[in-house]
Simulated assay, not measured.
Amino acid sequence: MANNPGAKKAIRKIEARTEVNRNRRSRVRTFLRKFEEAVTGGDQAAAKTAFNDAQSEVMRAVSKGVIHKNTGSRKVSRLAARLKKMAAA
């Protein structure tokens, strides 16, 4: 258990950071879900817009350190592949 002022402050900072990161991760998942819905709906224009929004949000999470750079790149790459596959069909 935290026993000195520095350790107690670190616990407070970690809790605050955890809350911010939880919100950012939730935001990313929301945009990914919106892209999924647009793709399954078959609306190509909506899927393109949702892709741009999702890509932006994923890369923002990467820049904030919520997710790793390679993870973000992988997610965006897979989204782009699904959008391309949808356009080809």
Rank of each mutant, 00 (worst) to 15 (best):
M1F: 14
A2V: 12
N4R: 02
P5M: 05
G6A: 15
G6T: 13
A7S: 12
K9H: 11
K9Q: 14
R12A: 12
R12C: 00
K13N: 11
E15M: 11
A16K: 13
A16T: 10
R17T: 09
R17L: 11
E19L: 11
V20I: 13
V20M: 13
N21W: 00
R22C: 01
R22G: 09
R25W: 04
R25P: 01
S26A: 13
R27E: 15
R27K: 15
F31H: 13
F31D: 11
L32K: 08
K34W: 11
F35T: 01
E37H: 09
V39F: 02
V39A: 09
G42M: 04
Q44T: 14
Q44L: 15
A47M: 03
K48I: 00
A50Q: 05
F51S: 00
Q55P: 00
Q55R: 12
Q55A: 12
S56N: 13
S56K: 09
S56P: 00
S56M: 07
M59L: 09
A61S: 07
K64Q: 08
V66R: 03
V66P: 07
R74T: 14
K75F: 14
L79R: 01
L79P: 01
A81I: 06
R82C: 10
K85C: 03
M86C: 03
A87K: 11
A87R: 12
A87P: 04
A88T: 09
A89E: 14
